[in-house]
Design a protein around this nucleic acid. Structure first.
Lengths: 328, 328
DNA sequence: ATATACGACGTTAGCGCTAACATTTGGCTA
DNA sequence: TAGCCAAATGTTAGCGCTAACGTCGTATAT
């Protein structure tokens, strides 16, 4: 920087002012400095700047990596929004979903001097660990779990999405709607399960099996369920991958979709438009979620009061849903 | 840090030595310093450390986000390996696949003082832009494109994976094997296309349609191809999502898989084990790719000579492949 | 007893930058 | 023409840390 200053015939401070777009630099000087910067291929050292200003313009983003599509979609969306707002992302994905690892990562983020932390949390454990570790750092949780009043959070509205699916199924005439849930400890799974339960017709049987988000786990579970004689007319799978497992199980048992059974999923992952048959599901608007997370981050950094945002999911109706067959 | 030194009754430098595990600190002193650190909840300022040491222990990772599964799987794998090796990841995902955006991002990484850059590049444009922008910074490319001799690179072996698929199809007796390729500018698509072409029986027709990696694009294209009377007995889709589109198109035309047509994909994305029928494909070992990328990074930082690593893909044989029907 | 070596610390300086204050310059007013 | 203001620039100090070197004391060799 000293070299640039010398080359432009000004002081270091003036170079600094040009870099920081300080208005009190004359156009002529600014021009000279710009040329010197270009000529010398000068690059500002952000570590030095961070040291003196105390902020890095870096956001730490923590994702729990257990299930791939959701969290990494959110991560990419958050990153792109952040960059548009002039922030950069330091990321870490949890391997274990232990509190310890989350705390380590957050601790590192703080040491690194991040301006804020966004945690994409799948389980109550990581929500709690995050809240303990962040201290007074501006924080936004991307989670469907319950969060304290004074905490910023954002999520795709799981309950609303579930209601949309249930509404369309009931509208078609389904009353016996089974549920294939995600892992019990997962907050998204819990939210979808709870709302499914709440949306059941009064007095309906609760036909539910638990999967681990993977299609394979559910293929086997669905085969078992179908064999037991609990005869739903529709199945609400907790995510699209599990819905694929259901579709395969139905196919192998010779049940037609939607004639013999309607199936719905959740997430609208890539490829479900070409499931056999194409799957009715809830599309998650990752980019809206990313922008919302970043908007909240800016509010948090600004010291504004905490609030929570729910992004509505969009119902995508495809061929896997239809009216139930009349009982023969 | 001065406070910690005072509390422990030692100099700042000694505290620094404890933090950096310098051996020439007596056990007793080390203990005292540790206690002072804990008592005061002292956190080292990494920006200051980076300023004086000149390295940040941060790796910049650039991913092109166009297609989701592959790059973000690699990203997560790279991050987890990096953290195991004591490095942290600063990431950016490209929205446009322009050289300009890549250069901006890399320029930022350099300003930030990253110790190295890993670029997950899908197109020749981003490979070139990356190589121009990084200068002398240690760099590893994750790409299937051709790279200069003096450049570290790693990729799942596209050609080998394609050969494995072609070998099994030919072994089953298929000679007319169509290809559904990814977008022409994509390096993975190009590599798979080239090897498919090379693996065709001599003098065979080249039946090929181009998709954009999405299942929807290919569903339509496949329908068209099937209607034209080019009658392959097997279809090699450039990725699993497009294979799903092919499966759906076949299903709607009443063709059975694998009796009337065998189908293979590439990537082994989650859910293909429950495609109808389950898909024969090549599984990409993301975690091996992540470790390899990080190993190469360490070599690059060490000034060792460049080399390229190919990670073999693993053939997963499922129900979508079988012997071709005898011509009626 | 003297020289030598080494382990265990302390002292000094500076990494590259910006905040805060000091200074200069030109333009305008009375 | 003196006086004053504001815009444009310079000067000083310090952010938190570590590299390099200096100092002290104790153990070992001669």
């Amino acid at each position: 920087m000293a070299e640039v200053a010398a080359a432009a015939g000004v002081s270091q401070q003036t170079v600094s002012r040009v870099l920081n777009s300080n208005p009190s630099v004359s156009a002529k000087t600014r021009q000279k400095v710009r040329e010197a910067i270009a000529a010398l291929e000068y690059r500002p050292n952000l570590a030095a700047r961070a040291l003196v200003t105390g902020n890095t313009h870096i956001i730490g983003v923590l994702v729990s990596s257990t299930s791939l599509e959701g969290p990494s979609g959110s991560l990419l969306a958050i990153e792109q929004t952040a960059r548009k707002d002039g922030y950069w992302v330091s990321m870490a994905s949890l391997q274990s979903n232990t509190a310890e690892e989350a705390v380590d990562v957050i601790s590192h983020f703080i040491n690194q001097g991040v301006d804020g932390i966004i945690a994409v949390a799948q389980t109550a454990v990581s929500v709690d660990a995050t809240l303990k570790a962040v201290g007074t750092m501006p924080t936004v949780l991307v989670t469907s779990g319950s969060v304290p009043e004074d905490c910023f959070s954002v999520d795709v509205d799981q309950a609303d999405g579930t209601r949309q699916l249930m509404t369309i199924l009931r509208g078609l005439g389904h009353t016996r709607i089974a549920h294939v849930s995600g892992p019990a400890l997962d907050l998204h799974a819990a939210a979808r399960l709870a709302e499914w339960r709440a949306s059941l017709p009064d007095g309906a049987d609760e036909i539910v099996v638990e999967g681990d988000w993977s299609s394979g786990s559910v293929y086997r579970a669905a085969m078992t369920m179908l064999a037991t004689g609990a005869n739903p007319t529709a199945i609400f799978a907790g995510n699209d991958r599990m819905a694929l497992g259901v579709l395969r199980a139905l196919n192998e048992r010779g049940l037609r979709v939607p004639t013999d059974m309607s199936v719905v999923g959740f997430d609208d992952i890539l490829g479900t438009d070409c499931a056999i048959p194409p799957l009715t599901t809830i599309s998650q608007n990752h980019s809206a979620l990313g922008s919302a997370a970043m908007d909240l981050m800016l509010e948090a950094m600004d010291g504004r009061p905490a609030r929570s945002v729910k992004i509505p999911g969009q119902l995508i109706v495809r061929a896997s849903t239809g009216v139930p067959a009349q009982p023969k």
